[in-house]
Design a protein around this nucleic acid. Structure first.
Length: 571
DNA sequence: GCCGTTTTCGGCCCGACTGTTTTCAGTCG
């Protein structure tokens, strides 16, 4: 749905429709993406009237959504597409090739696909077009390479460690007084388009040296742009990175601005205007007078808002919530008291039970649950009932050696295709934590897959449903499952759903997390670690995504102290 | 196309960098 509106926006841009109409469609698409409900469901239940209660969606767009839901088509989109040269949409996907140039290339040179574009560049025809030249052509060619290499967005788990390395390098430069990560990484999006860094120089004269040093970092492959305040580079890993050097008095304004999201910034600037001030990345202007911008807090206060955490700056209701004083107090890493899903050498983990316990203690945790695979998952070393009991005795012995820390007996039990579990109930009853997972039969029809998961959630021994959609980011799409029904079943049976924080999974994602929270379902944030070092990295990803899903500490199972947790598990 | 304790019409966030330009259009974020 959101994608359809985005495609329409692209075409509107090409036709030269008024800019604001294009923006209205983009904004509506963004609103739909951030929704905690499905737009189609809203339309079916309440018609266009229900859609029109959403911000940025009025009569026109609501009608288009209605048409898309009922017919699967959009007449306006199809009409515009017919009026444009064929293949134009393909050209628009090339980074650096905007609507104007794409239209020029398509009409003057009759280019209709990427191969044709490449030929036109090679023959010099593109460079000969008005307002273009050799450099412009080369830039388009580079954009095509980027598109082909698929180096669009990288996973959070790639971006975060890389950014921290560069951050440390920047912080160690003598001219740098302060440096921070901004952009979608600061908002902890599950994929990152590029890395953004903001630095304050010790003195203004240090700025050029900082930019120059950045351009020369060993991670940098090529420099794409360099000016007096900004340097853009492509890193060896294929990721783009920007560094901006700003004076201390503008740092808050710049951090706010470069953290985004774009739609959030627009909302803040609009609020500023209602207070009679203009806001840009250098600060606030009241009339002709500068009135601050050194910190984000100062700017939020000036526009009449409390501080809004970066992770929820998406213009999906947080501005309204802030205005009404009902912003959630989001969970923090320090709220977690344990981790309830990890593997050991008993199945496919790399470390022993004792090593995992030690790593968890180093993080300040009070408990962990060791959940090795169950018997039918042979490829991952699933445990027979006999081995499971042997492992449980080892845990008893381990616990006798530990002080102020408890290792819980658990298992990641396969949910078989019919929804029954891979161990009988009397064996499950011997465990503290039962993590139920789908690892097979991914292609079941939605109704069957949903019934399968719901049946597992109804088992009174089951603590939580692990990685509820089975997706692997960039590798495997979620299996067909009705999450609304799964969430309802979890609520009905008092079973938890997992935010699996393994880098490739991040499952549930932020949207469903928000839905589950609204429904009153408790979430377990688990790392599913297969190695002791993953306990810490997974925690970072998990907390980031949980915050994006508006989760509070009280929504999360493993923020409970051990005694409360045990009571809840024994229900 | 959306939206309204200044408005149902007339606004709509703001700036940097690049390239091909003698003053600015295109693209991006």
């Amino acid at each position: 749905m959101a994608e359809a509106l985005d495609r329409l926006a692209r075409l509107l841009e090409v036709t030269g429709a008024i800019r604001f109409k294009t923006q209205a469609h983009e904004r509506a698409a963004q609103v739909l993406r951030g929704l905690d409900r499905d737009a189609a469901a809203i339309f079916r239940a309440e018609g266009t009237k229900g859609l029109r209660t959403l911000p940025g969606i009025g009569e026109g767009i609501a009608t288009k959504i209605g048409e898309l839901v009922t017919t699967g088509r959009c007449t306006e989109y199809e009409k515009i597409r017919k009026s444009l040269p064929p293949g134009l949409e393909t050209l628009l996907a090339v980074p650096g090739l905007g609507p104007k140039t794409a239209m020029l290339v398509a009409t003057k040179l009759k280019v209709r696909n990427l191969a044709g574009l490449e030929r036109a560049i090679a023959s010099g025809k593109v460079a000969a077009l008005p307002r273009l030249g050799e450099k412009a052509a080369a830039k388009i060619l580079k954009g095509m390479e980027l598109l082909r290499s698929g180096a669009g967005r990288v996973p959070l788990s790639t971006a975060l460690p890389l950014a921290r390395r560069i951050l440390a390098r920047l912080a160690s430069l003598p001219g740098v007084a302060r440096v921070e990560i901004a952009g979608s990484l600061r908002r902890m999006r599950e994929t990152i388009g590029d890395l953004d860094f903001l630095a304050i120089p010790r003195k203004p004269a240090d700025a050029p040296g900082i930019l120059k040093a950045f351009a020369g970092f060993e991670e940098v492959r090529s420099v794409t742009a360099q000016g007096g305040t900004k340097c853009s580079v492509r890193l060896a890993s294929g990721v783009d990175a920007d560094l901006r050097v700003v004076p201390a008095e503008s740092f808050g304004a710049a951090l706010l601005y470069f953290s985004g999201s774009k739609n959030f910034n627009i909302r803040i600037r609009e609020l500023g205007i209602t207070k009679g001030m203009s806001l840009n990345e250098y600060g606030m202007l009241k009339g002709k007078k500068r009135s601050g911008g050194a910190t984000e807090e100062e700017i939020f206060k000036a526009v009449g808002l409390p501080f809004i955490p970066p992770e929820i700056r998406e213009d999906t209701g947080e501005v309204e919530a802030a205005l009404q004083g009902r912003l959630p107090i989001l969970i923090e890493a320090g709220d977690l008291r344990g981790d309830l899903h990890m593997h050991t050498t008993w199945s496919d983990g790399a470390n022993t039970a004792a090593q995992m316990a030690a790593a968890a203690q180093a993080l300040g945790y009070a408990y962990i649950a060791l959940c090795d695979h169950s018997r039918s998952l042979r490829v991952a070393g699933g445990l027979s009932i006999e081995d499971l009991r042997k492992k449980n005795r080892e845990i008893d012995a381990l616990n006798r050696t530990l002080k102020g820390f408890r290792v819980l007996k658990g298992a990641e039990v396969d949910i078989l295709a019919d929804g029954t579990l891979d161990y009988p109930d009397e064996v499950l009853a011997e465990l503290d934590v039962v993590v139920a997972s789908i690892h097979t039969a991914f292609t079941l029809p939605e109704a069957d897959q949903t019934r399968r998961a719901v049946r597992a959630l109804a088992n009174r021994h089951v603590t939580l449903l692990a990685h509820p959609t089975g997706r692997l980011i960039g590798k495997r799409a979620p299996y067909a499952i009705n999450l609304a029904e799964v969430i309802r079943a979890a609520k009905d049976h008092g079973t938890c759903l997992e935010l699996n924080a393994q880098a490739q999974r991040l499952d549930l994602a932020e949207g469903p997390l928000r839905q589950a929270r609204e429904a009153g379902v408790t979430i377990a944030i688990n790392t599913d670690s297969h190695r002791d070092t993953q306990l810490a990295s997974g925690r970072d990803y998990g907390i980031g995504i949980a915050r994006r899903g508006w989760l509070r500490a009280g929504d999360v199972l493993n923020t409970l102290p051990l005694d409360s947790l045990l009571k809840r598990l024994a229900r």
